[in-house]
Design a protein around this nucleic acid. Structure first.
Length: 308
DNA sequence: CACTTGACCTGTCCGC
DNA sequence: TGCGGACAGGTCAAGT
């Protein structure tokens, strides 16, 4: 569920909350959620300061002063929630410092959520020296956190094969068209979801951008022109930026680093709107399955293209 | 290599 | 009310 806009929203929050904090300990209770051993943690994370928080596609990268980084993939249900030190909540005092956590003085916007942490879906807890904590929650255990040397990040298969970021300045319609030709027989939806072609777009924004470009999700790539891909690329950028503005999409699980939900789905044109009218032409939006995914489209303005 | 399917998981919802 | 099954969808491994 977290796609590029959700991950970017989390990244911005973490950058503000974590920068310059120092790690004092790490707890985890599910091996696959954090495969590193205690020696790695002791040598490369404990005592380290957070220097930057970056993003590549759907992955969060928390860089440390030791030259190592936490690489975090939220997959379907992962959450990264920052909980300020207890005393910044209890002391109901006006803020005098520059610590962003102090804006929670007098009550965090989502106290109830934060106060309930850790809960049964908490997999990893990163504790900072001031008592604040970062919780990695993941109901379905698909996501993971790994501690890895910056010099080795691109030796991981996932990053080696990752395509250009959907919002990266190194991408344009022409490059996207060329990359997509590698899978010319596949439905366009499958190819947009393929992170090795283009990084960051998931199910929600694929449906939304295909609607914007008036392309049927099942259309084989080989039937699409450069002009259509130019339009599709523009739509991808448009829906991603709009969603970042709205704080992302909250279906069930997603919250940002401060526990807040996103509102993009209120603005969605087709996603989860089967049975409703298409905002462009008034036809009834349908839901089908394409490459095993729930797929929403307007049968009238996204007509299937005939193979001639 | 291109492409498809099943596995990884848990919570929720639907029909009986 | 309980119970089985389908579904949610990001990625990898294994299949054709």
């Amino acid at each position: 569920m977290p796609e590029l806009p959700e991950v970017e929203t989390i990244r911005v929050g973490l950058e503000r909350m974590l920068k310059t904090r120092t790690i004092s300990s790490i707890d985890f209770n599910w091996e696959k959620s954090f495969p590193n051993n205690t020696q790695d943690v002791k040598n490369h994370a404990i005592g380290a300061k957070v220097t930057h928080v970056k993003r590549l596609g759907k992955v969060i990268i928390i860089e440390l002063s030791t030259g190592y980084s936490f690489i975090i993939h939220l997959k379907m249900t992962g959450q990264l929630i920052f909980a300020p030190a207890l005393n910044s909540i209890i002391h109901n005092l006006p803020s005098t410092s520059n610590d962003p956590a102090d804006r929670f003085a007098g009550g965090h916007p989502n106290d109830s959520l934060i106060n309930d942490l850790p809960d049964k879906s908490t997999r990893v807890i990163i504790v900072f020296t001031d008592g604040s904590k970062l919780f990695f929650n993941d109901q379905r255990k698909f996501g993971w956190v790994r501690l890895i040397a910056n010099t080795e990040i691109f030796s991981i298969d996932f990053f080696k094969k990752l395509g250009p970021d959907a919002l990266g300045s190194d991408l344009n319609g022409e490059i996207l068209f060329k990359r997509m030709q590698r899978r010319k027989n596949s439905p366009v939806k499958a190819v947009i979801l393929d992170q090795t072609i283009l990084a960051g777009v998931g199910n929600i924004y694929t449906d939304e951008s295909l609607w914007g470009a008036k392309i049927n999700p099942a259309t084989p790539v080989k039937l699409l022109s450069q002009k259509q891909i130019d339009k599709l690329y523009k739509e991808i950028v448009f829906v991603m930026k709009l969603s970042i503005e709205k704080g992302g999409s909250t279906d069930k699980n997603y919250v940002d680093a401060e526990g807040k939900k996103g509102s993009y789905l209120k603005f969605a044109k087709v996603f989860r709107r089967e049975g409703q009218e298409c905002p462009r032409c008034g036809s009834i939006i349908e839901k089908t399955r394409v490459v095993g995914r729930g797929t929403h489209f307007c049968p009238s303005c996204q007509k299937p293209k005939e193979i001639k």
